[in-house]
Design a protein around this nucleic acid. Structure first.
Lengths: 163, 163
DNA sequence: TCAAATTGAATTGTTTACAATTATATTTTA
DNA sequence: TAAAATATAATTGTAAACAATTCAATTTGA
């Protein structure tokens, strides 16, 4: 449909068209989905970023900010203020390690743990809204992870020489 | 690989895992790609958002902020300050319509038009970095557009009744 | 062992992004 | 035709996000 057809003449500027930009589609798609999370997360007074922090902790509790950032592809500049807010909200605790005082461990409070059960309806509702076929969805996720992997490998190639 | 295998036991909380979240993959993928645009756009002193504004205008020059926002999925709160900056940089002009003074038309300056030719290497370099197979890439784009379409249809369903 | 390098979190500054509101212009309708 | 409704940009306020820097703790290695 929008791929090259012999009806529309093609020219060298086609690669500059928004319709042919993978990144633009990703950018719009991710923003538009995240916007739809808002009403689902409002009852918990969490933003999407707060929600993925909770998901990371439900998978693995009591991890450092560093490890959390690696999982979520976020840095301390984003996480630190957000985690302080979530601590104030009673979802998590922040504990500086006695062993190595550089590390701050984040752990779930009872409230944070209890939320997991109630949160089950969030992805359920989102899958429904997206009319997502589970298989198709997982395939898409795998494609995206492949891209993410390629990018981080490209980074490594540019940094192996320094040691 | 990360889909259901009979090795790992599955439980009802699987849908809450980051690995199974389409939105999270989209979010990371789009952020990580956009971050890689930075060095390519720095020579033009444009951010990714400025770049997609340019792409929109290269496709269709002299359109209203409203139309630009619809194409790019951005609202005036984002566009107005950015367009003012890009006008100051000499890429575009902003003209309030004489016919209907509510409309502000955005058009490319000569500098803005000239950039199109030089910009060709930007998607080229990105495709190379992503090691993207053009066909696979377009398929992925179509999948993403399908999702975006479903979301906007869902919005319409919730607003048809008001008239 | 102690200076230098590295690490992890926090801070600072800038840019995006969106919701909600405001201001102005235009269109509708009573 | 005047009031009400609608449309478009601009503004305001808040939250993310990241780069770059700072600070303190730890590790390395000379």
């Amino acid at each position: 449909m929008s791929t090259q057809s012999n009806m529309e003449e093609s020219n060298k500027y086609d690669i500059l068209k928004l319709d042919n930009q993978l990144c633009f589609s990703l950018y719009v798609c991710s923003k538009e989905i995240i916007r739809r999370y808002k009403p689902l997360l409002d009852p918990y007074d969490l933003t999407y970023t707060g929600y993925i922090i909770m998901m990371a902790l439900w998978e693995e509790d009591n991890i450092t900010i560093k490890a959390l950032g690696k999982k979520l592809y976020l840095d301390s500049g984003t996480l630190t203020p957000l985690l302080k807010k979530m601590e104030a909200q009673g979802y998590i605790n922040r504990n500086r390690s006695k062993d190595d005082e550089r590390n701050v461990y984040i752990s779930l409070t009872e409230k944070g743990k209890k939320m997991k059960e109630k949160a089950l309806c969030i992805p359920e509702q989102m899958i429904c809204l997206l009319k997502l076929d589970p298989k198709k969805g997982m395939q898409l996720i795998e494609e995206l992870k492949k891209i993410i992997r390629i990018l981080s490998e490209a980074d490594n190639e540019n940094t192996v020489d320094q040691k």
